[in-house]
Structure formats: C-alpha cells, structure tokens
Design a binder for these strands. Structure first.
Lengths: 136, 136
DNA sequence: AATTACGTTTACGTTAACGTAAACTTCAGT
DNA sequence: ACTGAAGTTTACGTTAACGTAAACGTAATT
C-alpha cells in the first residue's frame, strides 16, 4: 500500500505534463517527498493530484481547489477544530450543490431541445413535403 | 415579450461588468442589435448571456461555451442538418455527464468525510477523556 | 566514454479572460 | 448651456495556469 510514483508516472496516468505537476507543488497543492532532488509521490500525493484535476474539470481555480482539498487533511484533534471543519465542509458543499443545479439544468435543457429536434426530424422523414407546417 | 435591455441592465442582473459583456460580444458569444452605437439586448440575447455565465461556472472556456450555445441556434431546415445537430448535441451531452459524474463523486466523497467527522465529534463530546481511542 | 532517458532549477513567454484608463458621444435634467 | 449618467472605441495592463527553453545532474545502457 506504500507504493510510490515518479513525476512522469503521474503525468502519464493523468495526462498532464510534469511541468503542470510541479506547478501544483509551487502553488502548495501537493508536497511530495524527495530522494535528493527527485520528487517521490506517495499514494496520498496521487490522490491529491486526482482531486486537483477533478476540481479543475469542475471549474475551480487552483486556489479554490486547494481550499477544498486542504479540508481533507485538516487537523481534527479537538472538538473545536472538528466543528469549524464541519462548517467549512458545509460551505463548500453548498458550492458543489449550486454547480449540480446548474449542471442538471444544462442537461435537462439540452435533453428537451434534443427531443424537439427528434420530433422535427421524424416529421421531416414522414412527410417531407409538408415540413414547414410542422412548426404550427 | 419583446423586452429589451441596456448593457448595464444585464450587467447588474448577472453581476458582471459591462466590459465582460462586451468581451463576450467580441468573442462572438452575443450579438445584440444596435441603436446607433448603443447596444440593445433582446430577451434572446439575455438568455445567451445566462448560458455563457452558466457555462463558465461549470468550467467551460468561452470557446467551449460558444460551441454548445451555438447548437441552440443552429439551422434545422433539412433532415441532414437535424441529424448532425443531434450528433453534436449527444457529444456535448456526454461531456456534461462526465462532469456530473465528477461532481457526484466529489459530493458523496465530501459527505462521507463529513459523516466521519461528525462521528468523531460525537465521540469527543461523549467521552472527552478517551478521545484518542476512538481511532481504533 | 558516450549516448539516452529521466530528473532538476531558473526564467522568460504565452493565452484566456477580462481590468483599467483615456478620449469621446449622447441624452435627460436643471 | 451645462452637468451628470450612461454609452462607445481603442489600447495597454494584469492574473492564472501553465508552455518552453536553457543549463545542468544522475543513472543505466551501448
């Protein structure tokens, strides 16, 4: 379970360049161990990279992604820490749910439009001559 | 139903600057009518702006947003046009569904984590002394 | 010993998506 | 006639997120 990865291992797996991964490190999103100069990525580092990339796909900036991901490694020793962590999680959750509302709307919107297109196409294929009348 | 809007009307409504709206026009995303020099936005223009902004929130670039939104005003005269339109819609739909999978995973991930945090907090509040043992 | 394949740092370049400022017009209100 | 409040174009500036190139180290292969 303590498998490690080189920078190009991860670059290949996630289809990004090593430069990108180093950039994320410079921005504080990943902090791999070192063997001399060489970066050595743990399984946990790999997960963090996956989270960053997913965040990006969902439209988060690197800074926003960091805010969210850092919650997953926040200290939970005291009850106070746990409570403020739960508050922050809830805050981020709302942002994610806003996005889901947007996304659902976009998809159902597109579905309805596609359905109308299919209807129209069916009309055209049944009665090509009276195509224009289908609009009524 | 043929209501019109000034650039600052829309800027206020959608909480962006007029500069942003003009930029979208320069990128070919909106094409308002003109009264002399002044831009006059129709209801349809307003809808397009809303679509652009939603696309942005979902992580699309302006170019990607344009590709999707333009499908909604594609010509549908001939059957051939309708068929290629339906293909493109399906292609974009898959992208949206990929995003939904990402988003659902992010949310359920966070939910599980939050649940564990709540459990841990409950432990701490019940038996503060034996807190460390809760990890077993 | 030299090539090849990877890694490193440093630093300047690039693109998208606007921000910002200048210089100007147009129009409603005093 | 003058003053805002809105609009316009043009153009340079800025930020995020890397790309690209230079100059170099290290380790295995030929």
């Amino acid at each position: 379970m303590d498998q490690t990865f080189s920078i190009s291992d991860l670059a290949r797996e996630f289809d990004v360049t090593p430069r990108t991964i180093r950039h994320y490190e410079a921005e504080g999103l990943i902090a791999p161990a070192r063997d001399g100069q060489r970066r050595i990525y743990s399984g946990r580092d790999r997960v963090r990279l996956a989270l960053v990339l997913r965040g990006k796909r969902l439209g988060f900036s690197l800074a926003e992604a960091k805010e969210i991901i850092d919650l997953y490694s926040a200290p939970q020793g005291e009850a106070f820490q746990l409570r403020t962590l739960l508050e922050k999680l809830d805050e981020k959750r709302e942002i994610l749910e806003d996005k889901r509302r947007d996304l659902d709307a976009a998809i159902s919107n597109m579905d309805k439009y596609a359905a109308r297109c299919r209807d129209r196409l069916a009309e055209l294929e049944e009665r090509p001559e009276t195509a224009a009348e289908a609009a009524e």
